[in-house]
């Protein structure tokens, strides 16, 4: 079992790195791009012995306590079974 965790900046927080990436994409000739926001992606391998609920709770807790800083970031957890 695997958990995918996405950590993104809160919408209210400016993202200077995303802005620079946006600018570079425009320089390359890509038009019609809206905002670019940079985030982080994690894959966590979880023991197959856990129930799906336990696995989801564990991943949620890791995301909340370690991976994201709640002052500036949001997170989303997806569980991949099998």
């Amino acid at each position: 079992m695997k958990a995918k965790v996405y950590v993104t900046l809160k919408p209210s927080v400016l993202d200077p790195q995303g802005k620079a990436i946006h600018h570079s994409a425009e320089l390359l000739g890509f038009e019609n791009i809206g905002d670019v926001r940079q985030g982080k992606y994690f894959e966590i391998a979880l023991s197959a012995d856990m129930s799906e609920e336990e696995a989801k709770n564990t991943a949620e807790k890791i995301a909340k306590d370690v991976l994201a800083n709640p002052v500036i970031e949001d997170y989303r957890v997806e569980l991949v079974t099998g």
Binding site: V13, L14, P16, Q17, A20, N69, V71, I72
Partner: peptide, 17 residues
């Protein structure tokens, strides 16, 4: 200290990168 919650707020990437 901000990450540990001993001070409020956070420190992000500099505006000019």
């Amino acid at each position: 200290l901000c990450e540990a919650g001993l001070l409020p707020g956070a420190l992000m990437r500099n505006e000019g990168l």
